[in-house]
Amino acid sequence: MSIAPSPEVSTWGAFVATLRRDLLVAFKRRNDLLNPIMFFLIVVTLFPLGVSPDPLELTRISAGVVWVSALLASMLSLDNLYRADYEDGSLEQLLLSPQPLFFLVLAKNIAHWLISGLPVVVLSPLLAYMLYLPEEAYWTLVLTLLIGTPVLSLFGSIGVALTVGLGSRGLILAVIVLPLTMPVLIIGAKAVTDVMFGLPVGSHFALLGAMLAVALSIAPLASAAALRISVN
């Protein structure tokens, strides 16, 4: 028998191992990896076709379009978060780990963000360019998405954790998750629009940052509790 390392060390170890495992699973399933990004690209490119190719018109809606697409792309990939683990029994193993579930759930949420949120952040300037977003708003768009998309993953995780045990979930996931994520969408899109009009956006960033702080500290706890209920 090996000597057990100190608890802090192995909690960190379990956190890193869970993060690595989820990233590994995602990279082995290329479809799951590409789906949210492709969805994001397709939705954004449809707007000029459906609304109007007029640059003025597109400029006006560009911030909202990118933000709504980011929200939908994040929701689309949420189901992968716990579904497979629930079905193959890995979730039970996760719940029975002596390590705090808070950090294991946080690791899974971070993996989800790295897979679905980060690519959206990286691609957003390209799409902003397609939608004639004014140059001065680029950084605001990227920064709001950078702060906002992790909140989408963290709050989304609560909804998936609650519904993972249900056979047919349908719209219930959206009904649970959307009210939680709506404020992020409103403030994120508003910040970008305000920059275009030359208005100050410090307060928007403060609010988004506060949301991220709340989500980071509370959402994994709620997800962990919800997972215990779902497995029960």
Partner: peptide, 9 residues
């Protein structure tokens, strides 16, 4: 019953 083995890994 569900053995906790991920089928992709």
């Amino acid at each position: 019953h569900r053995v906790g083995v991920n089928r992709i890994l």
